[in-house]
Simulated scan of single mutants.
Amino acid sequence: MRVATWRGGSEITIDTVPDPRPAPGQLLLKVHSSGICGTDIHKTQGLFPGTPPEVLGHEFVGPVVEVGEGVDSALLGKNIACTLNPACGECQGCLTWSAMHCEREPRLAGGFAEYVLVDKRQIHIIPDSLDPEIAAMTEPAACVISTLNMLNEIEADCDALVVGGGLLGLLTVGVLKLRGAGRVILSEPNPARLAMGRQFGADVLNNPKQDDLPGLINDLTGGYGVKIGVEAVGVPQLVADVSKMIRPRGNLVLVGVSPQGSALPVDLYDFHYKEITMSGAFGAGDAFGEALDTLPDLNFTGVVSGRFPLEQTADALEISAGGNGVKYMIAPHD
């Protein structure tokens, strides 16, 4: 089969490797769609840990084409979405943190390929009513839900601010509205992304290049600030900016992933005085199944900005890094 191998930097090669065969407890998926994640891009830019050579792509879905011993053959032909690792459910990482942090089972990628092997403990069956391309966005949706789950119950009708209108930001807007948030403000400099905020439920749209965001928040909240402030880009200065627009005893939520080694340029006295709680979540946590159930409640019209064959993986990564679209897919069999 063919795979797209990251060789370091921006170099991607298309290689032929032996066809995989499922071992006991494994399934072989034919990749239908594999989403390009920001972490895939950040690895090629040296902003996120990664060791080449590596086949990137962890947001993949596809039908089961072969099963190993101990796997129900009724799964053949079913479209499947997968968590990043099987998770043993017994180690301290699983018991006190989340399935994403299992100490015994490594995280898996490899979705930029024609086929991929997965463990039966990773799989979630995609309903026939859900487009597999949309199901490929389960993992980023789970990242958002895992983060918001740390807030426990969202205060009814509260004000919330989301900075960043990429996929994670749009999903955050949608989930906040589903959970009862009142007025949700989306701030995004790209006009097309900003406009898409409406279909996810944003009540107020702000282009920070044209209108003053702190002034807008001040006017909307009477100078008090929002209950929930979300940074969905991964830029430390934006995190600091959002923190200044949060009301006392509000929540600063990190959905965007800042580069490793980043420092947070904030006045800690302000955090202490206003009693702000900051939270983040690494990956999907334990929310993958919940995310898959949530996708049908969101409007994904126009979210996928392009599908690329495996041979154009390098081009797809470069275009995705440009920030003009929302979500790009690698489609090895189109």
Rank of each mutant, 00 (worst) to 15 (best):
A142Y: 09
H101G: 07
E133T: 13
G215A: 12
A284Y: 01
V303R: 08
N152G: 06
A281L: 04
H42F: 06
E90K: 14
G289W: 02
P236N: 07
K120E: 11
L28R: 09
A87W: 03
D297S: 15
E155F: 02
E103H: 09
N251Y: 05
A202S: 01
D267I: 03
I41P: 13
D159A: 07
S73I: 12
R107C: 07
P214M: 05
G111D: 09
C102I: 15
I185A: 00
H333N: 14
E231W: 08
D131N: 13
W97Q: 14
C158M: 11
H58R: 05
D72C: 07
T44N: 13
V303P: 08
D297A: 12
A87N: 05
N152S: 11
P214W: 02
S262Q: 08
L56G: 01
L295A: 11
P309G: 00
R104W: 06
K78P: 10
E188S: 02
E231K: 15
Q45T: 08
I319N: 06
G50V: 10
R121F: 08
G222K: 14
G8L: 08
S187P: 05
D128I: 07
G174V: 02
K209W: 08
A195Q: 03
A316I: 09
S305T: 14
G261C: 13
T294W: 05
I217N: 03
L56N: 02
K244I: 04
Q26L: 06
I12M: 11
V204N: 03
E275G: 12
A109Q: 11
A99F: 04
K274N: 09
I14H: 04
R307A: 10
A87T: 04
A202Y: 00
V266E: 12
I126F: 06
G289D: 14
C143A: 14
A23M: 11
S258P: 08
V65L: 02
A195I: 00
V230I: 04
G77L: 15
C143K: 15
F60Q: 00
S258Q: 14
G306K: 04
T221R: 01
K177Q: 06
A135T: 09
G285K: 05
A136S: 15
G289L: 02
C82K: 03
L213Y: 03
I319K: 11
L84R: 06
G229D: 04
G197M: 09
D40I: 09
S146F: 15
V255S: 08
V116I: 13
